[in-house]
Design a binder for these strands. Structure first.
Lengths: 205, 205
DNA sequence: AGGAAATCTTGACAAGCGTCCAAGATCAGG
DNA sequence: CCTGATCTTGGACGCTTGTCAAGATTTCCT
């Protein structure tokens, strides 16, 4: 029965992909905790119920694993950010929602964001990561730009900066807030909220 | 002769410090080239005319060496930035000079700036680096804020953001420009110039 | 139930790491 | 020129790393 064979085949592929995802998620936990420079394959395996040898059954090498992890992170990240630009009818509401949304994602998973900045810095040295990092950066930039366009739509004005410049400034605020949040600064989240709320209108002067 | 003894002692200390500086500068070259995660003490020694064992004669351990390197970087960095806010009589001149200055420092030593962002990311994981990184961040923030205050002085207005927010946004632009510059983007430097020139007035609305 | 295909474990490998140390080289002072 | 302090070398250590392959185990189909 061919259909049965196809189903079985698909289930096998799915199982393989599921395990890859499972291992990558465990790797992400280890990476978020220790950072790229201090995370070995054995450390990653310790975060799973399997032995270190298995990692080479599901991934070609360490670079392959890390790359896959970055892509997993991207999915989780975009999913988290989705719906940031919710329903906001007035410009002020949108500006506040923007700051609140970014502050919330930062507070939600600071260690994952720390890993993101670590890996982005690594991509400046390791060619292998560059493509994936660029893709994530592009997605984040689009997310920010949608926010800017929504604000433009409500106010009936035109933004006076490029999408990449807008992303760069929001990212700068976010990265600094993460740094201070991890250092224990109480005001980091509030400052991020304020900074974003104020930045959005500035992009239209 | 006590004065002679003091001179000899000082000259010895100087010699020791000189060699430390020499080794740290070689280490900075290696670090800028390979990044923190891929630079070993033997690699660093390969960038000098000495053997790897000598590093432990002048530095307690690797962390000590890296910390000293970061401080060396800071000195070079601040020195480079000094005089960025030169004589500019009109607001437009100052805004242009700001963008030009940052673009020039980026073009001058992109690998050192890459190392800076690498080490700053590492400091999010490694407690030992945090204090030095925070100090450099503070100096850079002061530098940016002096620029903003100079602009305020010329225009007779008051900035409408905090020093840390101003630094975060400029830093975001700079970091993105570095990323694109290293990736070979021709427009990176020009975009940085434009971004900075436009950002400065935005901080006063 | 049997046997092939898959999944997983275990142990080993060469290489590289940070650190340390004994011994040689180099230099300054008497 | 000798002597002692300082500087430098190069090898050794114990450990970790990424990678791999052979064998044990499980899963699944007929």
């Amino acid at each position: 029965m061919p259909s049965s064979g196809a189903v079985r085949l698909r289930s096998r592929v799915d199982k393989f992909e599921d395990r890859r995802r499972e291992l990558a998620d465990a790797a992400l936990l280890a990476l978020a905790e220790l950072g790229y420079a201090r995370t070995s394959l054995r450390t990653i395996a310790d975060h799973t119920e399997f032995s270190h040898g298995l990692l080479h059954y599901y991934f070609a090498d360490k670079s392959d694993l890390i790359t896959y992890c970055v892509q997993r992170y991207k999915d989780a990240c975009v999913q988290r950010y989705e719906g940031l630009v919710a329903e906001a009818s007035t410009p002020a509401e949108l500006a506040v929602a923007c700051g609140d949304g970014l502050a919330a994602t930062l507070a939600d998973a600071p260690l994952l964001h720390r890993l993101w900045y670590d890996l982005r810095a690594q991509s400046l040295f390791e060619e292998a990561f560059r493509a994936d990092v660029a893709e994530i950066d592009g997605r984040l930039q689009d997310m920010i730009w949608r926010l800017v366009l929504a604000y433009a739509d409500i106010t009936g004005t035109e933004p006076t900066c490029t999408p990449s410049a807008a992303y760069a400034m929001f990212d700068g605020l976010f990265q600094q807030a993460l740094q201070r949040h991890l250092a224990g600064a109480e005001s980091a989240l509030d400052d991020l909220r304020d900074g974003c709320r104020d930045l959005l209108p500035r992009l239209f002067v």
